[in-house]
């Protein structure tokens, strides 16, 4: 994996001086490694997209998405789709690291372990946002609803940040277990419930044109969730990758 050489070549002394810049550089290197690998193979985003499209299609028949019911359930359908497609992506992105031995390589590199976490999390966030950026117009066209509202986009961004923050941490544990593919959703979904609930409610609020006062509690909850779990993951990630 040639892109990792950037990380490996970083000299230890660069950590001491201008350490924040070095830290950010290592994060950027890991993100870049993931994106470059993905642009070459395109397997992760491709699988997530097809899967997401299938979920939406199944919902169409399962829920009989006619005009009246559609409005009420759009945000729910979207978030369930994102959440399912997201676990697919998280599992894959961490499993690649594990199976190809990239994780070991990264761990040997003289970078702060938490830089690896942020690098992977930001990479996963990118993948998720790309998938969402394709799903949204697709859904808009298929069901003739306008999903391009700044409020909704903001909610999706907040939700995706929290999702990948927790998801990256838990996925890096799940891939090291014997039952890994099965394990991730079981670990992830119960912890995600407050975030998903708030995301569905806030999205619904924007789609239905509710007052901001009604939407704000959900937005605040999502911000709190994001901040808390990024901080927790930052503190405990060391123990997840320790050999």
């Amino acid at each position: 994996m040639p892109p990792t050489t950037d990380v490996v070549n970083q000299k230890p002394e660069s950590k001491a001086g201008g350490s924040l810049r070095a830290y950010l550089r290592s994060i950027a290197a890991i993100v870049w490694k993931d994106l470059a690998a993905e642009f070459r193979s395109r397997e992760l985003i491709g699988a997530m997209l097809v899967f997401a499209a299938l979920v939406i299609l199944i919902f169409n028949f399962a829920l009989e998405l006619d005009i009246r019911t559609r409005e009420a359930v759009t945000s729910g359908v979207l978030w369930v789709t994102f959440a399912f497609a997201g676990t697919l992506g998280l599992n894959r992105s961490m499993a690649i690291e594990k199976d190809r031995g990239c994780l070991d390589g990264l761990l040997l590199a003289p970078v702060d372990r938490t830089a690896i976490y942020f690098g992977k999390a930001i990479g996963n966030l990118f993948f998720m946002l790309i998938v969402e950026a394709i799903i949204l117009p697709m859904y808009s066209v298929l069901y003739n609803v306008n999903l391009f509202q700044p409020g909704l986009i903001f909610v999706i961004l907040l939700g995706s940040i929290g999702y990948t923050a927790v998801g990256t941490l838990l996925a890096s544990m799940a891939v090291q277990a014997r039952t890994r593919d099965m394990l991730l959703p079981i670990l992830l979904f119960p912890v995600l419930i407050p975030l998903l609930l708030a995301a569905v409610k806030a999205s619904n609020g924007f789609l239905m044109g509710f007052e901001m006062a009604e939407i704000m509690p959900w937005i605040n909850l999502m911000i709190a969730y994001d901040v808390i779990f990024i901080a927790v993951a930052f503190m405990v990630f060391d123990f997840v990758v320790e050999e």
Partner: peptide, 21 residues
């Protein structure tokens, strides 16, 4: 180690879940 991490993450999420519902 994994047990400890998940025990902490899970416990923190409980009050948020309660709040959200």
């Amino acid at each position: 180690r994994f047990g400890a991490v998940y025990g902490i993450v899970g416990f923190i999420s409980v009050p948020l879940t309660f709040l959200s519902i």
